[in-house]
């Protein structure tokens, strides 16, 4: 699989390590009343879709940036790749 790195262009997926569903960016608020439930769901439950999947890849053998890659889990086709940083910022996070 070739990942279209937003800064470095097409890179072999072997240069990356895989973390999983991009929802892992959205860490729950530990002070919420139902923090235990939220953390259980955050840490252990997955949508695990057959089809388009947004997921985190770390460019370990490259520029060490985190990417959010949208990939089809049925065909392995890579649809897009964004910097995880940009995704987080777009959601209102500071970094």
């Amino acid at each position: 699989m070739i990942i279209p790195h937003p800064l470095l262009g097409p890179r072999d997926s072997q240069e990356f390590t895989y973390l999983g569903d991009a929802s892992l960016i959205e860490r729950p608020d530990w002070q919420a009343d139902n923090a235990v439930d939220q953390f259980h769901d955050y840490l252990y439950l997955r949508d695990n879709p057959a089809g388009a999947h947004r997921e985190l890849w770390f460019h370990e053998q490259g520029d060490r940036s985190w990417l959010v890659v949208t990939r089809d889990t049925v065909t392995h086709e890579i649809i897009s790749a964004e910097l995880a940083r940009d995704v987080a910022k777009a959601k209102g996070r500071s970094k």
Binding site: G20, L45, R46, D47, N48, P49
Partner: peptide
Amino acid sequence: SGRVMAKAGMRLPIES
């Protein structure tokens, strides 16, 4: 598992 149980509205502690 994930695909089928989603039809019952469940998310699982499982990845395929």
